[in-house]
C-alpha cells in the first residue's frame, strides 16, 4: 500500500480482499498487479483462492486506500487502554448465577 501504485509502465497495484465460506467479512489477502479491476478479480481467483478459500472477492486500487499514520498510533488507540469496563471480564458476578 505504500509504494506508488504504478511501477513505471507497469500495471497498477490492487489490494485483494476475500470473504471466506463461513460468511465472515472480507479479509485482506494480499495484492497483485492487473491492467484493470476485471483482470484483478480474475487473477485474484488464481492467486488467492486456489483451495476454496473464498466465496467473494473485492479488489481495490491500492492508491485508493487511506491509511492511518504509524505516528498517530498512540493518539488513536491508547485512549481505549484505560476503558477496561468495556470488557465483560471487568465485572465480578457470583459463580453460581447462570447465563451471565
Amino acid at each position: 500500500m505504500t509504494n506508488d501504485a504504478k511501477g513505471k509502465g507497469g500495471w497498477p497495484l490492487f489490494e485483494v480482499f476475500i470473504r471466506s465460506k463461513q460468511g465472515l467479512s472480507h479479509v485482506h489477502a494480499g495484492s497483485l498487479h492487473a491492467a484493470d479491476a476485471k483482470m484483478a478479480i480474475e487473477n485474484a481467483r488464481d492467486v488467492y483462492t486456489r483451495r476454496n478459500e473464498g466465496t467473494s472477492i473485492w479488489v481495490v486500487p491500492s492508491d485508493a486506500i487511506s491509511a492511518s499514520a504509524p505516528e498517530d498510533k498512540g493518539t488513536l488507540f491508547d485512549p481505549a487502554d484505560s476503558k477496561i469496563y468495556r470488557h465483560p471480564t471487568f465485572y465480578t458476578v457470583p459463580d453460581d448465577v447462570e447465563c451471565l
Binding site: T2, N3, K8, L13, R50
Partner: peptide, 25 residues
C-alpha cells in the same frame, strides 16, 4: 497444481518485497 502453487508463491513474495518500495519491473 504444484507448479501453479509455486507461481503463486512467487507472486505473494514479489508483493511483500514491493511494500519496501522496489517495483515489480
Amino acid at each position: 497444481a504444484k507448479v501453479q502453487d509455486e507461481a503463486g508463491h512467487g507472486l505473494y513474495l514479489y508483493s511483500a518485497a514491493e511494500t519496501l518500495n522496489v517495483s515489480r519491473d
